Simulated assay, not measured.
Amino acid sequence: MRYIIALVLCLPTGLWANNWDALRAPDAIAIMRHALAPGGGDPTNHTIGDCTTQRNLSDQGRAQARRIGQALRAQKITFDMVYTSQWCRTSETARLLEYGSPRKAPALNSFFGNPALRAPQTRDLRAQLERTEGLNIWVTHQVNISALTGTGTSSGEIIVFRLTPDGTEILGRIMIDP
């Protein structure tokens, strides 16, 4: 006699499913961590505007960014504007999403190498988010997303949230592939 044992793992939907409807919610804001870029941080002598001095997207990261853009368009998601930090890996990710020319926003720049910038830069980013209308996507770095939303992200992951008087409310997450 054969016995078949099945193990069913029940997880809340938000832990594994992309929440596309979150992008359609009133006041939704999409913030994305740049696509795959091997390593961590940047060399101490990096220069904004000189990609040869920075950590950059890998071929896998470039392909990931393209797939994310394709998946967003397949869901008929449109953005009024794409904002990016001045770092090469975020700018390239934003460009590869293929939603038009990204606009540089210094408030999205990484402060990984200078933690003293966390509070003032996060205040600046929040102020910019409060002034901006429509559905936009903001391509930035893990430290910025964590400081603003209180949650971590994987490379290429999109956090959808709204601003609240006390901080932020996470509406959903979208992760096309690791």
Rank of each mutant, 00 (worst) to 15 (best):
N109Y: 01
T47C: 15
L72P: 03
G49K: 03
L117C: 14
T90N: 06
L57V: 06
T140R: 00
P43A: 14
S58N: 07
T122P: 04
D50N: 10
G172S: 03
I4Y: 13
W138M: 06
D27T: 07
Q54N: 10
M1I: 13
A127V: 13
I4D: 09
K104D: 09
R2T: 10
D59E: 14
H141K: 04
N18W: 00
P120W: 05
I176W: 00
T153R: 01
F79A: 07
Q54I: 08
T90K: 02
K104R: 09
E157P: 07
D124A: 10
R123V: 12
F111M: 07
I31F: 00
L97D: 13
V160R: 00
A63G: 06
R103D: 14
L9I: 14
C10K: 13
Q75C: 07
G40E: 14
Q121A: 07
I48S: 08
A65I: 05
S101G: 15
V82R: 09
C88H: 06
N109G: 12
D42H: 14
G172R: 01
N56E: 14
I176L: 06
L23K: 00
I48C: 00
R2K: 14
R66M: 09
F112Y: 04
T168L: 01
I4V: 09
R62D: 05
R103I: 07
I68C: 07
G150H: 12
D21I: 09
V160S: 03
F112T: 12
R62C: 14
T164S: 09
I77C: 10
G39R: 03
A94E: 00
R67F: 03
Q70D: 10
A17T: 14
A37Y: 00
A17H: 15
T44H: 11
